[in-house]
Design a protein around this nucleic acid. Sequence first.
DNA 1: ATAGTGAATGTTACAGTATAACAAATGAGA
DNA 2: TCTCATTTGTTATACTGTAACATTCACTAT
Lengths: 158, 158
Amino acid sequence: MTLHDSPKHNHKHCVNTALAMAQQLCLERGVQLTPIRYQVLELIWASHKAVKAYELLEQVKPLQMAAKPPTIYRALEFLSEQGLIHRVESLNAFIGCRCSNAPHEQLLLICKNCQEVEERTAPKVMQALSEEFNDAGFIVHSKAIEIHGLCSQCAVQL
Amino acid sequence: MTLHDSPKHNHKHCVNTALAMAQQLCLERGVQLTPIRYQVLELIWASHKAVKAYELLEQVKPLQMAAKPPTIYRALEFLSEQGLIHRVESLNAFIGCRCSNAPHEQLLLICKNCQEVEERTAPKVMQALSEEFNDAGFIVHSKAIEIHGLCSQCAVQL
DNA sequence: ATAGTGAATGTTACAGTATAACAAATGAGA
DNA sequence: TCTCATTTGTTATACTGTAACATTCACTAT
Ligand SMILES: [Zn+2]
Ligand SMILES: [Zn+2]
Ligand SMILES: [Zn+2]
Ligand SMILES: [Zn+2]
C-alpha cells in the first residue's frame, strides 16, 4: 500500500480538482487544453507515481490512433509550460502538479519503493537557498530539487 | 570570459589537485584508477563545464581506439561511485567533484550562459532540508539539488 | 607451472529518450 | 473566400544508456 492508496486519500478528488483547475487556468490564459493534452494530463494524474513519456505513449495509443513520440512530447511541453505538470529530471518522468495556479518552487520527495512523488513547498528550504544564491552572486532561473529515499508509508513497512 | 577563466583562477591547480586526490583516494580504498578511468576523469576536469558522455567518448577515441559507449559509461560509473564526479541530472552530464574525500551533499549552481557548474556545500540549506524530511517522515537516500541561472560572472556581463 | 579466480575491458546489439523538419488539418478573423 | 496562426500528423533521426557475452590480464592456490 502506498501513501496515496491509503483510505484517507481520496484520489478521485485529486484528479477532479487537478483537471478542473487545468481547464479553468487554460480558459483564463486563453490557451487550448485540447483533447490530446487533456488525455495526457489525465493519464499523468492516474496516480502519484512519476510517469515516463513512452508509457504515456502506449496508454494514449488506444485513444489516439496516430500517437507518435512528438504527440506526447508536445503535450508534455505544453502542460509543463502551463505549470500543470513537472518533469522529474532524475527519472526522466513526469508528475502532475497540485499548485498550478501560481508559479512556485518545487521540492520533490521521490520514493524508491513505491515510486510515488510528493511535491512540497518547503519555504524554509527556499529561504536558505535564496541566501546561498546571494552569497554566490547567482541569479536563479529555475530549480530542480529532487530527493530520493523512502516515503513515510514505505519506511514503516520495510 | 567565465568564472573560471578569470586571472584569479588557476585551473591547472584545480586539475592537479583533483587528479592527485583521485589517485590517493583510490590507493587508500584499494580500487583501481586505470588508464581509461584516469583519462575520463582528466577530460571531465578539462573545464568546469558539465560534460556529456558522448562528448567524452569522442575525446577518448584518439587515446583509446576501442572506445565504445560502455567504455565511457563504465568509467563514469566507477568515478561516480568513488565520489570523484557528480552526475548533473538535469543536463545528462557530468562534472568533477572537488570534495571527494568525504561523502557530501551537493548543491549545483548551473550557469545557462557559460555552462559552468559550481558545487556548494550549503549547510544551511541542508539543515532546512533535514527538517523538511522529518516533517514528511521521509528517509533520504540521495539528493539532487540543481539550480539553473546565471553565475556571478555572466550576470554582470549580460 | 598451471589452473582457477575476479576485475577490467572489448564487442555487438539493442533499449530508451527526445527532437528536427516538413506536411496536413483546423479554426478564427479579415 | 482567403489568410494566418495553432495544432496535429508523419517520417526520420539524434541522443542517452544498458544487456549480454567474449576476452584479457594479473594474482593466487594448488
Ligand atoms: Zn491523489
Ligand atoms: Zn513509498
Ligand atoms: Zn578550475
Ligand atoms: Zn556563467
